[in-house]
Structure formats: C-alpha cells, structure tokens
C-alpha cells in the first residue's frame, strides 16, 4: 500500500478528507449566497439571469463546479464509511446514555443533519440545476435604454429562441437569457417546497455550527489567538447569517412576490 493510501485509510486521514471537503463546501456557500442575493433586486431577474449564464458558462467556474459536485459525493461517502466504522466500534450499546450532559446536540447528530442536507441538495439541484441545464426553462428578453435606464421585459415563447445574447445596439442594451428567476418565483409559490427549504436551512445551520469549527480541530488548528475567530465565524456567519439569508429567499418569493 502506498503511503498516501495509508494516510487516507487511517482514521485521521478519513477525517482530513471530511474536513477539507467540508470547508470547500463552506467556501462555496459564501459565493452561492452572494450571487443569489441578486434575487432580491427589483429588476425582474435581469441581474440574476445574467449571473446564472455566467456561472454556467465560464470555464474556470465550470471546473470548480465539478470539483464541488465531487466534494459533495466524497463528503457523503466518507461520512457513511466513518459512520459504519463508528457503529462497529460499539457493537453493544448503552441502555442509558446521557449524551446531552456532555456534548452538544448538533455534534451528536451530524449524520442525520447531513442526510437532510443531501436530500435537500438533490431536491434543490433537480428544481433548478437540472431544469436550467435541460432547456425546461423559458427565455426572457431585457431591453434597457441606456439613456433613460428603463428596462422592458418580454417573455420569449419556449423553443422559439435558445441562445444567450448580450449586446448594445443603438444605446439599447439587449440581453436574452434563460429565465431562471421566473423558475425560482414559480417554484417558491408552493408552500411545501418553501417549508422544505426552510427546514433544509435549519439543518444547514446546526450542521455548520458544529462542522465549521470541527473541521479546523480535525486539521489540527488550535491556536489560542485564532480559535475564537473560527468559533465566531462558525456560529454567527455559517450557523446564523448564511442559513437565514438563504431561507429568506423562498420566504421572500412566497410572501412578497
């Protein structure tokens, strides 16, 4: 067995993989959130649809997105492998076990939270990613008069137009793009989908409250000067701000649009 294989098959190596993929997914969340905040623009989805085209067609981003899908799969598979190993380490369980008296709930339920998140990711990708990539999203045209900054929006009939274009002609900016914004607005008219997304974000919150700081512990990072910063980021940014901002999107479309 090669040395690198030895590392990855050891208990600490498996946790290293969990930690690195987990942190990579955390960094993605930040980018995903910043991009999706454009859903809140009151421009009928112009900025968001333009951004969606860029994210799906710019080569470096495409490479990173495939790394991201790989990370999700690797993170889930290693979690399963580690969990099976952990179960084997205690074949006979306790009749009485008071975990709540020595550890946090989130830390003891990372597997359940992660499973909820995996179901969420699959649902989320089939709602938007799959539809966007399989031409089941209609096109829309934005004409912006650059002198008056007035935008007119025209829906394009499905099948009539299938190419993204962006140009300026005679002081008028024309963008024709897939209307993912409309798909978002459409999807979040369903109360059960909104409820599921909010639940997913609650799971994300608890998963990251433990997971973010735990990833640094696994990497062996325990510097007393910087650990408070890590803890702060883990709880307030990844555990509170990011999940709430994401959950605000379905709620915004359901209640305000």
């Amino acid at each position: 067995m090669s040395k690198s294989k030895q590392v990855l098959s050891s208990s600490l190596g498996k946790k290293l993989i969990m930690s690195l993929t987990g942190l990579f997914l955390c960094s993605f969340l930040v980018v995903h959130l910043i991009g999706n905040l454009q859903l809140f623009y009151n421009d009928q989805g112009k900025a968001f649809n333009d951004y969606a085209y860029f994210m799906t067609h710019f080569t470096p981003i495409k490479i990173i997105s495939y790394l991201l899908y790989t990370s999700i799969v690797v993170h889930a598979i290693y979690a399963l492998v580690v969990t099976i190993h952990n179960r084997k380490a205690r074949p006979v369980g306790y009749a009485v076990y008071r975990g709540s008296e020595n550890s946090a709930w989130s830390s003891r339920n990372m597997g359940i939270l992660g499973t909820v998140l995996l179901v969420f990711i699959v649902t989320h990708m089939s709602n938007f990613w799959w539809k966007y990539h399989n031409d089941s999203v209609p096109y829309v045209e934005y004409r912006t008069d650059l002198k008056t900054n007035q935008t007119t929006v025209t829906e394009l009939v499905a099948g009539e137009f299938t190419e993204y274009v962006s140009y300026v002609d005679n002081e008028v900016e024309v963008i024709k793009a897939k209307d993912l914004y409309k798909q978002v607005a459409f999807a979040f008219k369903e109360w059960y989908l909104v409820a599921f997304y909010v639940l997913g974000m609650a799971a994300l919150s608890f998963h990251l409250i433990h997971g973010f700081k735990s990833a640094f512990q696994t990497l062996g990072f325990d510097n007393r000067k910087y650990i408070p910063i890590i803890r702060f980021l883990g709880i307030w940014i990844f555990g509170v701000v990011i999940p709430i901002a994401f959950a605000a999107m379905p709620l915004y479309f359901y209640f305000l649009k």
Binding site: S10, H85, S103, S214, T218
Partner: peptide
C-alpha cells in the same frame, strides 16, 4: 500509536467534546 489505535478497532472522532467533559 495512531496505527495501533486503528488496529484495535476504536471509532473516529466527531469532536463532540464528550470525552473532555467526562
């Protein structure tokens, strides 16, 4: 020591902190 720990069949660490508390 880590190799021996793995060979003995102990589980992995989830960083729950229960060990430290107990």
């Amino acid at each position: 020591m880590v190799a021996q720990m793995d060979a003995e069949g102990f589980g992995n660490c989830t960083n729950t902190g229960a060990c430290e508390a107990e």
